[in-house]
Design a binder for these strands. Structure first.
Lengths: 337, 337
DNA sequence: CTGAAAGCGCTTACAG
DNA sequence: CTGAAAGCGCTTACAG
């Protein structure tokens, strides 16, 4: 166990090997020609000495930081936490693999000041936005500053590079699966209708009916269910209308629906089927009777981060990417994508 | 709205004002003498031009990064998430106020490789550990590398600087409150007995009895309740022994206890009192019939971060700090600390 | 293939 | 109070 001596620098390495710093730098970075023999000598020595270049100095010379920022909403609620957490894990993984680090910024909707500090302080090379709003102050600011940005999820702002799961296909497959089993009275409860994700999911829901040659019964479709009251109300009405199944647009809605069904009648869960989207909550939370489409938030973060790094490093990338999902039916599991 | 020109540097400022970079640097940092007049001219110009020093360059010159790392357990479960999230928010707040940024590292118990990368890459000036284990590889590594560290929570490792809430006093007050109301058969369900926090809480529990001149009935005390099964088992036994109250050592235990009581008999919650520790879950989740001691995780993060920065900047600090808590009884709220 | 030198944008002894 | 110069640890034209 060595004691911590003063750090080795590139100059020390050069001195020891009797070459110039230039050569050592080139041998390490792989840029510029260096004889194979010299490269080996350098490599061997730095391995042996466990020399690590000072990334800060490297960054200064290249006007880079090898850091990215991730903006997390400070006001996200418990239901969403696992999603952001998993997403964050994926981002950190991807970053570490390419020797970047992740700087976390919490920000509330209206106030991009935390982000501004980081940008003006030259602390990062790019930013991933984990939640984009319709009028996104953060996104606008970054655009103006010409900072590379990638957003997680779907935003209406098409100028923003964004990565998301294929919610539309997912909802279509889930719904088709139900229709194939002869279920016809399919209810749906969704959140804010102006959210892009809500629209995409409903689009998939409608697609499934269209593909089956059936009409969508809009009287069984509820939007704007953002609070317990509204969801319970919707469930009550759906029960009255004898819905055979309720498709929930997110984890929170699903939890409320299940609770409401249980409270109304313990056996209801055996007669009314529930299907839902599952964003990251540990599986055990959802009842085993629920059919789900599962999204891998960690993977989403991973892909998002890699896309951002590609942009930073000047590689060309697609403006919009869709990730696969997993359909988990009650009888079996089908991988789709 | 200005377009993004090439960044202003200290040399530009010096040139424009007809002084040296040295002077500008001093005027900004406040170190070294500068005439009041010069200082004002500099200040005014950089305000007007919105000049921000390049923190990276400053860092290189001072061998600092103005970043800290926060290590978050990658394997934490849903119950703990709000705690870490709130803690993280507090840390970021405190850091931003002092112009530091926060770099997030996810790490699993055995594997400190993510942390090592960051340290060897010279990316941070210090580290806050949000969960310390008995044999903590991360803590050991940092100690060996002589990196400033502060831990959130109580660790058995007394050489580690740590910040925590005063769990012992909190549990004592909570328990005393119950005893004062004439309750005698007080059950307690706690997690892993080897955890310092569990011991502290039990210590407070016992303190309350001692202060009241009463004996602790150890047959009503359960440790090691880490899974649903064990907790339910404990509840069953406590009901059999006619416990009048159940003190839960954490949110997860409390949730299971409440669920179990409800399942056993819907009215049980009115006869058996439940008291618990509340670490960050949104209040509505816990039943209103539960007496709680509440801890402010965000504040904990805030204080922890400030302590770390004090260390980094060479200020002297206390090795162990205890933060206050809030006792929330069913009838009223008492601030304590 | 290799190196001397300038530069990234700041700080800080040292000498006025 | 102020400035010229060296330095933080790397990279990269430019010239051999």
């Amino acid at each position: 166990m060595e004691t911590v001596e003063k750090k080795l620098t590139i100059a020390d390495v050069a001195d020891y090997l009797g070459v110039s710093k230039t050569t050592v730098s080139r041998a390490i970075s792989g840029k510029g020609r260096v004889s194979e023999e010299t490269r080996k000598r350098v490599q061997q020595y730095i391995d042996q000495m466990d020399y690590k270049p000072n990334v800060i100095a490297k960054g200064l010379a290249q006007s880079k930081t090898f850091n990215i920022a991730v903006v997390i909403p400070a006001d996200c609620d418990m239901q969403e936490l696992p999603f952001f957490q998993n997403c964050m894990c994926g981002i950190c993984d991807a970053a570490a693999k390419r020797d970047y680090d992740v700087l976390t910024v919490y920000s509330t909707a209206g106030d991009p000041s935390g982000l501004e500090r980081i940008i003006t302080n030259h602390k990062v090379d790019g930013v991933v936005l984990t939640r984009t709003l319709v009028e996104d102050a953060a996104a606008d600011y970054l655009k103006r500053r010409e900072v590379p940005v990638v957003a997680v999820g779907s935003s209406a702002d098409t100028s923003l590079i964004q990565i998301d799961h294929d919610h539309r296909s997912a909802c279509q497959e889930l719904t088709s699966h139900l229709l194939k089993q002869g279920i016809r009275k399919v209810g749906m409860i969704g959140g804010n209708e102006s959210h892009v994700v809500t629209r995409n999911r409903f689009g998939g829901f409608a697609d499934a009916f269209r593909m089956a040659g059936l009409p969508v019964d809009m009287s069984l479709v509820y939007f704007g269910a953002e609070k317990a009251k509204e969801i319970e109300q919707a469930v009550d009405e759906l029960l009255e209308k004898n819905a055979e199944c309720i498709v929930c647009m997110d984890d929170m809605i699903c939890n409320h629906v299940i609770r409401k069904l249980r409270e109304t009648d313990v056996n209801l869960l055996n007669t009314v089927r529930v299907a839902s989207f599952y964003g990251g909550i540990s599986g055990s939370v959802l009842a085993s009777q629920v059919e789900t489409v599962e999204f891998d938030a960690k993977k989403l973060g991973f892909v998002t981060c890699n896309t951002l790094l590609d942009i930073i490093e000047g590689k060309q990338i697609a403006v919009k990417q869709l990730l696969p999902y997993k359909l988990r039916t009650i009888e079996q599991t089908v991988i789709a994508g």
